[in-house]
Design a protein around this nucleic acid. Structure first.
Length: 658
RNA sequence: GCCCUCGUAGCUCAGCUGGAUAGAGCAGCCGACUUCUAAUCGGCAGGUCGCAGGUUCGAAUCCUGCCGGGGGUACCA
C-alpha cells in the first residue's frame, strides 16, 4: 500500500473534471506531498495555488471545490484548507490501523509488485580481474547491488552483469611476468598469489620505464609554468585594472598547476627510486630495458589470438576470477552474468564494419570515428593502429544485451568522470538504432579522504578493498566486545557470536556509509563515523532490530497469531511510527524513480528514530491493556521486518543479538 | 577555451520537477538508566542556503552574470 499513490488516485477524478489535459492532471497530483510539519497534518496537497491561477479563481475556492468533489471520507478526516490554499490531510486512525494490519499479514509488507514489470540490465562493479580490487570499486559494487536488489523486489526482471576487465594490458603484464619470472612451484601451490606477485613486479618495472620517459617532459612543463607565473606577475602590476585582475587570477591558477606538477614529479621520482634503490629490481630493469613495449606486444599478441598467449590467458583467468570472487562472496554480491571484455572480443570488427556501412562511422586522422551532434570530439571506435577501444566494446555490449534480453533499460553504475564517454556512447547507440531503450549512466562521486582528496593510504597508495573490509570488521569487533564486556550482568556473547556480529555490523556499516550519500557527489570516507553507534548508520538500525527481537525472545510471542489482529492506536508516539511504517512503499518508489538508494537509507533512519521514540514511551510487554500490548507487538514486529527487508535491499544483514 | 558538476549550521550531509517559520546526524551545552539491550531517549544552542541581479502570489530550488572547489575534454579504461 502506497499512501501517496492512494491519495493521488482519490484526487485524480476531481482534478480531471477541472483540467482536461491528463498529463497536466498528473503533474498537479505530484504536488501532493508528505506534510512538512505534523501540525499541517500527515500529507498536504499544494495544487490549488497553481490551479487557481490557471482557472482564474481564488485558490481557496478551488481547494474547497476539489475537496468536496473528491471521495476521501474513509481515508482522511475532513481536510482543512490553510493559508493561500494548502489542503491539509490527516489520515483516519481506523484506516491506518487497517493498512497496518494488511502489511502485517503480508510477506511483502504490503508492497505491491510492479503492475508493468520492466526488464533491467544492471552493469556494475566491473573491476580489472588481474589487479587487486581497491576502494574505488566499492561504490559501483555496492550501489549496483542495491539497485539490482531493489528493482527485483519491486517485481522487475533484473539481469545483473559484471563487465569485467579481463582483456587489457594487465594480462600482457602477467603474461610477460610469467614467461620470464614465474616460480612454477609457487604457481602450482598458490596460483593467485603468484600471479599477483608477477603483476606487481611487472607493473613496477613498467611504471619505472614510463616514469623515466615522462619525467623530462613534466620537468619542462613545471619550468614553463614557473616562467608563466613570473610573466603574469609582471602583468599584474599593470595600471589597467582589468589586465591586472586577469593576471592575478592567472598567477593563482598557475601556482596551483605548478603545485600539481611538482606532486606529479615527486610521484614519478618515487617510482623511479623504488626500483633504483632495490638491487634486484634495478638489475631486472636493466635486463628488460624495453619492458613497457614488450608488455604491449604481449597484449597485442593475445588480442591477435596468438596460441601461446591465449593458452596462458585461459590458464590465468579462472585464478583471477577466484580472487575477486572472494571479495564478492564476502560482500554477499552476486551476478547473473560476468561477461567481461573478452566476451565481446570477436564482435568488435563487425561493430565497426556495420557502423561504417550505415554511414555512422568514418575515417579521420587515421582513426575510425563516430561524429555526434553536440560533441566537440568524436567517439573513436578504432585506433589508427587497428586496435579497438572501450567505446567499441561498449557498443558491442549494447547490441548483445538488446538481442539477448530485450531490456527496457540498461543501467551503468560507473563513476561520474566517465559522463562524457557515456553521453557519447548513448548518442551513438541511439543513432545506431537502439533508440527506444532507456540507457542510464548511474554516476557516482569519488570516495575522499579526510584531507578532501581521493582516499589514499598514508604512503599515497590506493587503499585495497580487502584491507578496507578487514579494517571495518576489526573495528566492529572492538565495539562489539567493548559493549558486551560492559554489560552489567556480564558478557553475553561467545567469541564466535562476536565475530559473526562484527562481520555483519562492520560490512553493513561500510556499505551503508556509501549508500546513505546522494550518489552523484563525492563523499568523505570516515572510518569512525561509519561504525558510530548513533546517527545515520547501519549500526543504529541493526541495533533497533536486535532490540525488537529481544522483546519477542523475552516474551515468547507467537507471531503468526498476532499478526492478524486489529490494531488499536492509543499513545501519541504510536501514530508517527505507524505512519512511518506505511511509508516504506514511498521510499522504495523514490529509489526506483531516480535510482538513488539514499532515499531508502533516509527512510530507514527516520523509521528507526520513530521506533526509538515509541520504545521510550510505550512499554510493549507491560502495556496497560491486552489490546495495547498486541498493537505494540505488531508495530514492533512490523518495524523489525521493515528494517530487515530495507537493509537487505541495501545488501546489509541483521543479527538477533548485538 | 569549451562542457559537466558542486558551494546549505563548527564538521559530515539531506532538501533542488518552486510552496507554509530551511532539515538531520556528529561535535557542544542541559537533563533522563531499581525499567522490554543507555550501541538509547528528551531538550537547548547553532544558518544573510557562495555573491549579485531576474522570473512571481511565493526561490535553497528556475534563468543570467560573477566568485570559489572538483572532474572531463581525438586514439587509456
Amino acid at each position: 500500500m502506497n499512501v501517496l499513490a492512494e491519495l493521488k488516485s482519490r484526487f485524480r477524478p476531481a482534478l480531471a473534471s477541472l483540467v482536461s489535459d491528463a498529463a497536466k492532471v498528473s503533474e498537479l497530483l505530484e504536488l501532493i506531498r508528505v506534510a512538512q510539519d505534523p501540525k499541517f497534518g500527515d500529507y498536504q496537497a499544494n495544487f490549488a495555488m497553481p490551479l487557481g491561477k490557471v482557472l482564474g479563481k481564488s485558490p481557496r475556492d478551488v481547494a474547497t471545490q476539489i475537496v468536496t468533489a473528491a471521495r476521501l471520507d474513509d481515508l482522511v478526516a475532513p481536510p482543512e484548507i490553510a493559508g493561500p490554499g494548502f489542503i491539509n490531510l490527516r489520515l483516519r486512525d481506523e484506516w491506518v490501523a487497517a493498512a497496518l494490519r494488511m502489511a502485517a499479514t503480508d510477506e511483502r509488507l504490503g508492497i505491491d509488485a510492479a503492475k508493468n514489470p520492466r526488464t533491467y540490465v544492471v552493469d556494475y562493479s566491473s573491476p580489472n580481474v588481474a589487479k587487486p580490487m581497491h576502494v574505488g570499486h566499492i561504490r559501483s559494487t555496492v550501489i549496483g547491488d542495491s539497485l539490482a536488489r531493489t528493482l527485483r523486489f519491486l517485481g522487475h526482471k533484473v539481469i545483473s552483469d559484471n563487465h569485467l576487465g579481463d582483456w587489457g594490458t594487465q594480462f600482457g603484464m602477467i603474461i610477460y611476468g610469467y614467461k620470464h619470472w614465474v616460480d612454477q612451484a609457487q604457481f602450482q601451490t598458490n596460483p593467485v598469489a603468484e600471479l599477483s606477485r608477477l603483476y606487481k613486479l611487472v607493473s613496477k618495472l613498467v611504471e619505472y620505464r614510463e616514469s623515466l620517459k615522462s619525467l623530462p617532459e613534466a620537468e619542462r612543463r613545471l619550468a614553463a609554468k614557473h616562467k608563466e607565473v613570473d610573466e603574469q606577475k609582471t602583468l599584474s602590476k599593470s595600471a589597467d585594472k582589468a589586465v591586472s585582475k586577469k593576471a592575478n587570477d592567472a598567477v593563482r591558477r598557475c601556482l596551483k598547476q605548478a603545485e600539481e606538477l611538482a606532486e606529479e614529479i615527486a610521484s614519478l621520482k618515487g617510482k623511479i627510486a623504488a626500483v633504483e634503490q632495490d638491487v634486484s629490481l634495478s638489475k631486472l630493469v636493466q635486463e628488460h630495458a624495453s619492458i613497457d613495449e614488450a608488455v604491449l606486444a604481449e597484449t597485442a599478441k593475445l588480442h591477435a589470438d596468438d596460441a601461446e598467449n591465449h593458452r596462458l590467458w585461459h590458464e590465468f583467468l579462472p585464478h583471477c576470477r577466484d580472487e575477486i570472487q572472494k571479495v564478492y562472496s564476502r560482500l554477499d554480491v552476486k551476478f547473473d552474468y560476468e561477461h567481461g571484455e573478452s566476451f565481446y572480443h570477436d564482435r568488435l570488427a563487425a561493430v565497426v564494419e556495420d557502423m561504417k556501412k550505415k554511414g555512422l562511422a568514418q575515417e579521420s586522422q587515421g582513426a575510425i570515428c563516430v561524429f555526434l551532434e553536440g560533441f566537440e570530439a568524436p567517439m573513436i571506435v578504432q585506433k589508427k593502429d587497428g586496435a579497438f577501444l572501450y567505446s567499441t566494446t561498449d557498443l558491442a555490449t549494447i547490441a548483445y544485451r538488446m538481442e539477448t534480453w530485450q531490456p527496457h533499460a540498461i543501467l551503468y553504475v560507473v563513476d561520474h568522470r566517465q559522463s562524457d564517454h557515456f553521453d557519447k556512447l548513448f548518442a551513438a547507440a541511439r543513432k545506431w538504432g537502439y533508440d527506444s531503450v532507456e540507457l542510464q549512466h548511474i554516476k557516482f562521486g569519488t570516495v575522499m579522504g579526510k584531507d578532501g582528496k581521493p582516499y589514499k593510504t598514508r604512503s599515497g597508495d590506493t587503499v585495497g578493498l580487502e584491507g578496507l573490509l578487514d579494517e571495518a570488521v576489526s573495528q566492529a569487533l572492538k565495539v562489539v566486545s567493548e559493549n558486551d564486556d560492559a554489560n552489567p550482568s556480564g558478557p553475553a556473547l561467545s567469541s564466535e557470536e562476536r565475530r559473526n556480529i562484527s562481520e555483519v555490523v562492520g560490512l553493513g556499516g561500510l556499505k551503508y556509509a556509501d549508500l546513505s550519500h546522494n550518489r552523484t557527489t563525492d563523499y568523505e570516507f570516515d572510518a569512525e563515523k561509519m561504525l558510530a553507534k548513533t546517527g545515520n548508520t547501519a549500526t543504529y538500525m541493526q541495533y533497533s532490530y536486535a532490540r525488537v527481537r529481544s522483546i519477542f525472545a523475552r516474551g515468547g510471542i507467537a507471531l503468526s497469531v498476532l499478526r492478524d489482529t486489529l490494531l488499536i492506536l492509543t499513545h501519541p508516539a504510536e501514530r508517527p511510527l505507524s505512519l512511518m511504517l506505511l511509508r516504506f512503499a514511498e521510499a522504495l518508489a523514490e529509489t526506483e524513480a531516480d535510482y538513488m538508494p539514499h532515499h531508502l537509507t533516509a527512510y530507514l533512519f527516520d523509521l528507526t528514530k520513530s521506533y526509538f521514540t515509541f520504545y521510550e514511551y510505550c512499554p510493549v510487554l507491560k502495556a496497560d491493556t491486552e489490546g495495547s500490548r498486541t498493537t505494540r507487538l505488531i508495530l514492533s514486529d512490523l518495524t523489525a521486518r521493515t528494517i530487515k527487508q530495507g537493509l537487505s535491499l541495501l545488501g546489509i544483514g541483521v543479527v538477533e543479538k548485538m
